[in-house]
Amino acid sequence: MKTFRCPSRHGYAAEISPFLPSRLACAASQHYGIAGCGTLLVLDQDEGGIKLIRSFDWNDGLFDVTWSENNEHVLVTGAGDGSVQVWDTANPRGPLQVLKEHTQEVYSVDWSQVRGEALLLSGSWDHTVKLWDLERPQSLCTFRGHEGVVYSTVWSPHVTSCFASASGDGTLRVWDVKMGVSRLVIPAHNAEILSCDWCKYDQNVLVTGAVDCGLRVWDLRSTRQPVAELLGHSYAIRRLKFSPFHRTLLASCSYDFTVRIWDFSRPEPLLETLEHHTEFVCGLDFNLHIPNQVVDCAWDETVKVYIPASLADLQPCAD
């Protein structure tokens, strides 16, 4: 396990570059994000460990980060002051662009996976999701409908112009960007939903994680009940991700300090519980290039990169 220490910075999100297998970014905040500023850390991992390439400061906490899909140097963060920053790792001076329309904390940002487009989603505590084209200074569209804080917004990896959002109102919503409306509203939990993600192998499958400590896997063709419910965490699930290499494999991190690896096709779905953090674990990502490698970050001022033991011998999915 490789560890990077970021003193007095508390990790909120960690994402691995879609271009460089060794490159990762961590959005972190001073004072647990309750006061003070935020820092974007750009890191590189090698055999020796993890080293800092560059860091950028922002005047308020940074809560999420996403890499550009069309420029390896560009990444985007969401901040506590409602702004979205576009950064260039080659430009140490500050953000290339600051997009300020949200009136409250931006808790999620996600870059569209459609190559050639520079479309970005931002989800905010102001209950809205905004769509941005980074070629333009104003947002293209504001999606209203959630009746609570929006915690998570994720593009569909299969259907262009489709994304999902998870909210404090207990619903998972699936939106059509072209229509500007939510196509599906799923009352997925009887609790605040803090995270959602799409299966990379089935365009109809999504997972949600909530304050009720449960993960639920959903098939959009039949949303009356979840395909699977994964129980084990003892506190709210803060973030979860489907594996890029396995159809039914996913990872979740939680306020219970643990990261858990799940395979929802198995009768005993919990594969592993990792207890290597001493604070809330908020950021989590799978490496697209190195099968089964995971990065996470926590409020204990560390970013960790590792391959969970349960996945060490797992071969990537054939399809």
Partner: peptide, 26 residues
């Protein structure tokens, strides 16, 4: 001088995540 900028609502939201009785909307 920094104390003015404490974001109490953020503390409230995070506290909400930690309370299993908390349901829907911070």
């Amino acid at each position: 001088s920094q104390a003015n900028v404490l974001k109490m609502h953020r503390l409230r939201v995070v506290s909400g995540h930690l309370s299993p009785q908390n349901r829907l909307g911070p």
